[in-house]
Design a protein around this nucleic acid. Structure first.
Lengths: 222, 222
DNA sequence: CGCGGGATTGACCCGTATCAAATACTGTGG
DNA sequence: CCACAGTATTTGATACGGGTCAATCCCGCG
């Protein structure tokens, strides 16, 4: 999951679960904190998240970290480049994943439909990442966090009538490293949104979006 | 072209020109300033840059711009998502491109080898973009510009013995919008590098890298 | 030779980082 | 179930990098 402009997001979210017809593809389970793969690992499988949330990260030698994406149900993680994983992947919650052989993506290997679906997923990934560039390069802390919450609300929020609740399985520093901020700034920005009554913080991992339209406005810099 | 860690870059640069065996694929020519496609256009063709340089950009409604990538010879531009282009593409110099039907990427369509090559290019693109995330989100202005120059030097620089010359066909504001900075900051950072004798500015579009090792060090934040 | 648009430089300011302290949570063992 | 320790989060004070706005410079071009 990348942070895209919410209004555009709808068009990209239409990722139907892939049909399961892959030999040797027993669903994989991960406990919170467990790693699915590491940067540099040979890619054998791609995975579609079935339930739960995973986090893709990349590290700089001096310890700076960038969260590349969060993997929510429907998302494909583990695209290879030159046969290798280029991120670490850790489960944030109890997570189930449907594995697909790398060869299905790369050679088709007996399943043309799945091949095409995985390819389309890769292409959508490129487009979604382009949106995220805009966010990292050109948006303020406020806009970043507002966009982040809007996307999550649209994708996995629970409707509460006039407001909407969002669960954040990731830590503040995960959010910070995803948005290119510090934890302190993320925290302060949450506080600011809370004080302006746009959101309420039910608990650390649960945000109530009280004024969705205002939040959407903020995300676009209005 | 994205800005990746130069040392990693070598591994990703190994993109052999695709074999040309596509029906109806006459090489396309563009003059500087000409557009190849716009955001929202239906994708009919992908292109491999043969010579010259193109620029991929995305706009926010309020005018903020993000340069997504520069397309140098060997690069593939125009990957579709849901059948559409999601960036504008403008030629910065006289440019020649080899078109490939979108169907070759998406369905294989009679040319399995090309299909595989295009797919691999897309996957490498994803990985390269992940590197660029790190840059946009986690690097200082100094590190960004140093990284940018290092990558260009490695990829298209001319060897001058102990130093190296790089041609920059793009404007300062293109560089700024690529790195998530302002033109003023890009300009100041150039000046700073010049004053510390790491680079010399032969003219606006030609940089001499006098101390490549120092520049590489800066790019990694040392 | 003068015009115009990009590039550079300067002065100043603001947003976000940094460093530090207080507070809130989470899990563990008794 | 409570006490405690360790960790995450929030809050505060301050610093600084890079943005903003404005002036000047430079170079290509008519």
């Amino acid at each position: 999951m990348y942070v895209t402009n919410p209004s555009e997001f709808a068009a990209e979210a239409s990722f139907a679960p892939l049909h399961i017809s892959c030999p040797h593809s027993v669903e994989t389970q991960l406990k919170p904190g467990a790693y699915l793969f590491y940067e540099g690992d040979e890619v054998e499988w791609l995975y579609q998240v079935t339930s739960g949330v995973v986090r893709l990260t990349r590290l700089l030698s001096d310890g700076r970290r960038q969260v590349i994406a969060f993997g929510y149900p429907g998302d494909i993680v583990g695209f290879p480049a030159d046969g290798l994983h280029h991120t670490d992947c850790e489960a944030l919650t109890e997570t189930r994943l449907q594995p697909f052989r790398r060869s299905i993506l790369e050679t088709g290997d007996g399943d043309p439909k799945m091949h095409r679906d995985l390819l389309q997923a890769a292409l959508r990934e490129i487009s979604a990442m382009q949106d995220h560039f805009m966010m990292l390069g050109r948006k303020s802390a406020n806009e970043k966090l507002a966009s982040f919450l809007c996307v999550l609300a649209e994708r996995v929020g629970k409707d509460l009538g006039s407001s909407r609740s969002v669960t954040l399985p990731m830590s503040r520093s995960d959010i910070a490293d995803f948005l290119g901020l510090t934890t302190e700034t993320v925290s302060r920005t949450f506080t600011q949104l809370r004080k302006s009554k746009i959101i309420a913080i039910e608990n650390i991992h649960t945000i109530i979006i009280q004024r969705p339209t205002a939040l959407l406005g903020l995300s676009k810099g209005e």
